[in-house]
Simulated scan of single mutants.
Amino acid sequence: MDATQTAIGINKENRKAVVEMLRKLLADEYLMYTKLRNAHWNVEGIDFHTKHVFFEEEYNKIETIVDEVAERIRMLGFYSPGTLGEFLKLTHLKDESPEKTDSATLMAALLEDHTTIIKFIRKSIGDNAEAHNDEGTADFITGILQVHEQMSWMLRASLK
């Protein structure tokens, strides 16, 4: 066996299918990261300081996920997308900013994006484990799902 081959017990077709899902997830995460940076930079209002700090904490969480998803793609033997053009073609999220810069408007838009990502990941967990024989990626994205669920909860609680 060639040591440079990705022989991890998952055939190439299944790895390729999993990677296609991960490429979309990476694009979603990168766009979410960018939107959180935008919120951090542009939030205004009486709660500016607390929300400025909050958005920074949140984009740091997503930055870690971005790196981990890209590295998971590499572990499966494929290259990660890495340009804005690729991300925009792959993402499920809308590439737009809210017109207002108050924290509630920004948070509502981010909550919508988290919900989109959560639904995509939830569907993908079973596909990865059952259809593509990749329990490792199913477990990996379950952890990411939990991060987005917590972030969504924080946004929902803040918007009440």
Results as ranks from 00 to 15, higher is better:
107 M>Q: 08
117 I>W: 01
110 L>E: 05
132 H>D: 06
104 A>L: 09
124 S>M: 04
127 D>M: 00
129 A>R: 13
99 E>H: 14
130 E>Q: 09
100 K>M: 10
130 E>V: 12
127 D>G: 00
122 R>Q: 15
97 S>T: 12
111 L>T: 06
108 A>W: 13
133 N>K: 12
108 A>T: 11
117 I>G: 05
119 K>E: 14
102 D>I: 08
116 T>N: 10
112 E>N: 12
124 S>V: 03
116 T>Y: 04
98 P>K: 02
119 K>Y: 05
102 D>Q: 05
107 M>W: 03
103 S>F: 12
121 I>H: 02
114 H>N: 15
106 L>W: 01
121 I>K: 02
120 F>Y: 13
114 H>K: 08
120 F>R: 01
113 D>P: 04
113 D>G: 04
111 L>H: 11
99 E>R: 14
122 R>L: 10
98 P>V: 04
116 T>G: 04
112 E>D: 14
133 N>S: 13
107 M>E: 04
122 R>G: 05
103 S>L: 08
120 F>D: 07
97 S>P: 00
127 D>T: 07
104 A>V: 10
101 T>W: 07
110 L>Q: 03
103 S>P: 05
102 D>E: 11
116 T>L: 06
129 A>F: 11
107 M>K: 05
99 E>I: 11
130 E>P: 00
112 E>G: 10
131 A>C: 11
101 T>H: 15
